[in-house]
Design a binder for these strands. Sequence first.
RNA 1: GGGCAAUUAGCUCAGUUGGUUAGAGCGUUACAUUGACAUUGUAAAGGUCACAGGUUCGAAUCCUGUAUUGCCCACCA
Length: 902
Amino acid sequence: MVIDYKIFTMKELDKAYEAKKYEDGIYKKWEESGFFVPENLPDTKGRYVNILPPPNANGEMHIGHASGYVVMDLLGRYHRMQGEKVLLLPGKDHAGIQSQVVYEKKIKKERGITRYDLGREKFYDEIFAFCKDRAQYMRGQEKKIGLSADWFREKFTMDPELVNIVLDTFVKMYNEVDDNGNRMIYQGERIINWCPRCFTALSDVEVEHSEQKAKLYTFKYDKDFPFSISTTRPETKLGDTAVAVNPKDKRYKKFIGKIFEVDFVGVPLKIKVIADHEVDQTFGTGALGVTPAHSAVDWEMARKNDLPIIKVINENGKIHEGFGKFSGMAVGEAREAIVNELRESKLLEQEEDYPNNLSVCERCKTAIEPLVSKQWFVNVDHANFSLKNAARKAIENDEIKIYPERFKDVMLNWIDNVRDWCISRQIWWGPRIPIWYKGEEIVASVDSPGEGWEQDPSTLDTWFSSGQWAYSTLGFPNGNDFKEFYPSDVMVMGRDILPFWAFRMIIMSLYRTGQVPFKNLYFTGLIRDEKGQKMSKSKGNGIDPKDVIDKYGTDAVRLSLLIGNSPGNDLNLSEQKIAGFRNFTNKLWNISRFMLLNIENPKEDIAKPVPATDFDRWILVELDILTARIDDSVKNYNLSCAGESLRLFTWSILADWYLEAAKIEKDKSEILNYVLNTILKLWHPFMPFVTEAIWQHIYGENELLMVNHLPKSPVVARNIYKDGEVVAYNWEYPNKRDQKEAGELKNNIGKLQDIVGTIRVFRANVNIESGKKIDVFISAGDHVEFLKRNAEIIKGLRTGIGELVIGKEIEKPENTVRLYVEGVGVFVDTGNAVDNAQRRAKVEKEIAMKEPYIRQLEHKLSNEEFKKNAPPEVVIGEMRKLNNANDELDQLKTELNYLKNV
RNA sequence: GGGCAAUUAGCUCAGUUGGUUAGAGCGUUACAUUGACAUUGUAAAGGUCACAGGUUCGAAUCCUGUAUUGCCCACCA
C-alpha cells in the first residue's frame, strides 16, 4: 500500500504566537489529564515533593507570589520530566490578624457594622466563608501562572483536620514539663506589644518601626526631686518606679540606692535610683525614668532590680483607674494634660523636637503600646527539648541546605537572638487556644473536657499554624501522605519572611516529627519596579500579574521572573523586560514553525539521528552540552543561568547559525525533528504554555509534553576541586575521541563564524550595497578541508560572495583587501565597491587601538618576573596574542598603504 | 548601635579556583525588508568595573579602609 504523506501534513503554525488563544485550553488539558496528581504519573522513579507556601487567603496573587510560584513550578515540572513522582501541594493561610483587619474594614464599609455587632461565632463563620471565597479566586490566578499543583490536595490552615493537628501540638507542648515543673508552653505576665486597634498582643515580628516627629520633654517629678529626667512619653511616667543612671556617672553616684517619695502631678510615686550600664550618660540628663509596665527595656531593668510594676495604660489605650483626674483619659490627652501641669508648676525645663522611632502594628499601622499582659508563650529553649538548639544544629549540619548560602549565617544569627514566642492573640479569627478552665482547674485539651468548662478566649498566633504546615498538610502522624511525602525536597519562600516562618517551620517540625521539614530552603528576593522602588498600591508603580499575563502571555511573565533573577536578591522588573520575553516566546514559536516546514512526518519519540554534515554534528554537540549544563544549573538552583544558556542556544546558535545553514544544506527532516523535540522539552519547565501548544500542534491533542521525559546527555560534569571543595567545573564526553572531535568541530565552526562575521562587518563598514557581490579568497591553513566542505554555507550566509576560492596557502591576490581573522587569510576583491574614505578612517582607527595594546603586551612579556612566576600556558598565551596583534597590525598598515595609493 | 548585601555601558544585569583589548539584553543610531519571524535581521556608538590604599609578575575578581544605596535586627529614654 502506498501512503500519501500529504494526507498527514499538518496545518502550518500561525504566523505569530497568541498566548491568549492557547493558555486556558492547555491548562485545562493538563488538569484533566490528572498528571498533577503524583499517583497518576506512570513508571515513576523517586519522588519530588514541594509543599507550597500558603499565601494569605484574603487578597489576590501579586507579582511577588508569582515570582515564587514560577520557581516552584519550574522545579516541579523539571523533576516530573525526569520521571519522578512529583507532588506540588498547594494551600492557603488564614492569616489571623491580617484577615480579621481586612474583613472588619469590609463589613464597616459595606454594612457599617463591627465584629461586635455580629458576635464571635457569626463573625468567625463569615470570615471562614470569606477566606474560602478568596482562596478560590486566588486558585484561579495560580492556575493562570501555570502552577502544576495537585489541587485535590489543596489545604487551608483552618480546615478542621489541620486545626486538630495544630491544637494537638499545643497540648503536647503544654504537657512538656521539665524537672523544675516548667512547661514548654506557659502563661505569663510579660511585657508585650499591644495593638489598641486590633485589641491584641503582637509578636515582635508583627511590629514595624517608623520614624516620627516627637517631642522630648525634660522635667522633674516634683520640686524636691534632686535631678531631672527626659522622656517622649510623659503620660507613662505615672507608672515610674525608678530612675536609672549610669554607674559611672559622677553626677548621680551619690543617689544610687536611695528611694524618693515624690508627688508627680498629684500622683504619689516611690522612685528608687538604680544603676544600669545601659544608660547613656550623654543622652538628655543622663537619667532615665523607669516605667516597667510600658517599655521593654525598663521591664528588663525592673526584673533585674526587683522593682514593682505599675500599669498605667489599659488595653483600650486609656489611663487605668487610680490615677485621679487622669484616669480614663486617652494616651494623647493625658500627655497634654500632664505636660500642661508640669509647665504650670514650672517643673518642665525643656521641650525639644526629637525624631523618634515609633512602633506600629504591621497590619493596621496603629501605634503599638508596650504593656504588661497575661499571655501564652513558647519556651524556645526548654530543658526537655530546646527548639532553638535543634534548629541551629539542623542548619549548621546542612540537614537543611540554604540558598543563597549567605542566608545560613543570617538564619543562625537570628536563632541565637530569638526570645520566647508569644503565641496568644486576642482576636476571634484563628484556632482558639485549647486551654479549659473550671474554677481553679486548668487543662489543655483539643476538645472540651465536659460540662462547666470554659475555653480560653484567645486564639493562636498565625505562625503557630503555618509553622506546622510541612506536616499538617500531609495528615501527620498516620496519614499515607505523611509517610510517603515527608520531609519535602524543597521550600521556596520570600526572604522577607525568613525569620518568622522558616525558623518556626523548622522548630515545630523537628519537635513533632523528629525530622527536618524540607531538605533545601530557597529564598526569593523582592520584586521591585524598574527603579528599584518597592511596588505599592499607593505609589501606583506595581505590576499586576493579571494585567501582564493578559498583555504578554504567561510564558513571557515567567521568563522575566526567572532570567536575571537569583536567589535572595531583589529583582527590578519593568514591563519592557516582559515585552522582550514576549518577543522571545514568539521567536521560539517561529523557529518551530520553520523547522516544521522542513520536517516530514514528525515523530514524537525520534532517536538521536546520525549526523550527515559538519553543521549537523555541531548542533548535536551543542545540544549535548546544553542539556548537561541545564541539568547541573537546575540541580544547583541556578535557574537564571539555565534559562540564559537555553536562550543563547535557541537564538544565537540554533536560529542564527544552524537553521540558516540548514536552509542551504536542506534535507534535514530527522535532525530538525530531534532538535525541535529536545528544545521544546528543555524549555517546557520555563515556558510551559507555548511549548505545549507547539507540541500538541505537532503530535496531536492527546499527547502531553508535560509528562515527556527530558533527554539524557552523554556529556558529564567534572568538578574541579581545590582544598577539597568544588570550585569550578567543565564538561566532557566520557569518550576521549568524542571529546576531541567535539573540540575540533567547535573550533572549525567558530572559525567559519569569524570569517562570515568579518566579511559582514567589512561590507557594513565600507558601505557595499547589499546586492553587490564580492569575490573572496581564503588562505585557510589547517581549516582548509572543513572550509572547503562548507564553502556553500559561507557564500549563503549573507556574505554576498560571488566567487569563493579556498586553499591551504594562498598569496594575497592583486587588488584585494586583506581582512583579519586569526590564523587564516581572508582576501576580498571588492571591485571598486568600497567607500575608500570610510574604509581608511576605519583602518586608521584600528591601528590607533592596536598600537598601545601591543606595547602593553610587549611590556608584560619583557618582565622577567612574569615569565618566572606565571604558569607556562599563560605566558604562551600572551606570546600568541602578541604575535597575532603584530600580524594584524602589519596587515592593517599594508591595507592603509594600499588605500592611500588607490 | 550590630549585621547583610549592592556599587560593571543611558537602563536591567552576567562576569566561575586572580591571567579578556571587560560581556549580554533593552534602549539609541545606521542599513536591510516579497524570506520561519519587524514580536525580525546585519552592524555601530557607548565603560579609567564607586573611591583610596595594599597583596601579586598580574586585580572588576583577594585584603583593608572610605563613600553612596538598599535591606534585616536591636533600639535611646
